[in-house]
């Protein structure tokens, strides 16, 4: 009996988590968004009208590709810059190392909204508003990534490096053939956070992007909502388009993503 209630509770829980997604899809194929005689689970005359309206209203495919490209680029950059810095801080000796690391940590604590105004001015002065570069720039390196990866590199036994040094390997060889393969779980965690951070980022694109060609999905959707305030079928069609790609990525990498998030909590 107790197990019955347990199953009832977990299934109810997952219904609450999944139903809003289902409702988004249903609304997007319902004519006018909602039938006059109250909401229905099974749509009488399903239609793709909302998707046509969406395609006419904004370059949604381009916006989708923008989001993907920026997220992938930002993840790639953060993995490269982060792992290199991690190796530098964990394995090299150079003057002012602790001071420099302190500066990295300081940038970790400062929230984005402190930076938004001057960053915006910086981009405006450099005439970089409305470019991919402006979207990408603040996420090329992240102190969070450096910090997490440094912990991982420190955990790699130094004897491995020393043995390789004796065999004549330089820093670059040690970094690419010994350290990088051994810190793969940490790299996966950083990749997950970098990708999600870029994919979901809203405040910065909102500030720096004006033209639809350079928008990312969150910004595009928020603009869409401004245009179609009461046409919920169109707004939900836009939401479906932006949920589907990330849901696919999530389904494929679900185990790693959840492990990556859980990993940050234990320490």
């Amino acid at each position: 009996m107790r197990r019955f209630w347990l199953y009832a509770a977990v299934v109810a829980g997952s219904a609450i988590m999944l139903f809003p997604f289902l409702w988004t899809v249903i609304t997007s194929i319902t004519p006018e968004g909602s039938p006059a005689d109250g909401p229905k689970l099974i749509v009488d005359n399903p239609t793709l009208d909302a998707y046509h309206t969406l395609l006419d209203a904004m370059p949604i495919w381009r916006i989708l590709v923008n989001s993907l490209l920026i997220a992938i680029a930002s993840t790639g950059f953060q993995l490269i810059t982060g792992s290199m810095a991690a190796y530098g801080f964990a394995r090299l000796h150079f003057p002012l190392k602790n001071v420099i690391f302190g500066c990295y940590l300081a940038t970790l604590m400062v929230p984005l909204q402190v930076l938004v105004v001057p960053l915006f001015i910086e981009m405006k002065t450099l005439n970089l508003q409305d470019t991919y570069f402006a979207l990408l720039a603040p996420t090329i390196a992240s102190a969070f990534g450096v910090f997490l990866l440094r912990q991982a590199v420190t955990a790699v036994p130094a004897e491995l490096d020393e043995a390789a040094t004796i065999d004549g390997a330089g820093h670059l060889r040690i970094f690419t053939t010994i350290v990088l393969p051994l810190i793969r779980p940490a790299l996966a965690t950083v990749a997950v956070f970098a990708f999600m951070g870029s994919w979901n980022s809203f405040l910065w694109p909102l500030v720096v992007i004006r033209s639809p060609e350079f928008m990312t999905l969150p910004l595009g959707l928020s603009t869409l909502q401004g245009q179609f305030t009461t046409q919920w079928d169109v707004v939900m069609a836009g939401s479906v388009v932006s949920i589907v790609p990330i849901a696919i990525v999530y389904l494929l990498a679900q185990r790693h993503i959840i492990a990556g998030v859980a990993h940050t909590g234990i320490k």
Binding site: A85, L92, T107, V110, I121, A137, I140, A143
Partner: peptide, 30 residues
């Protein structure tokens, strides 16, 4: 050694400096 340190750190140090540290200081100024 300094060369190696620069090689490994500059890729992250330059963007953090230009897009975080400088805005941080200029935000105080503003």
């Amino acid at each position: 050694k300094l060369g190696w340190a620069l090689f490994f750190l500059l890729p992250s140090a330059i963007p953090l400096l230009v897009f975080t540290l400088v805005p941080m200081v200029s935000s105080l100024w503003v």
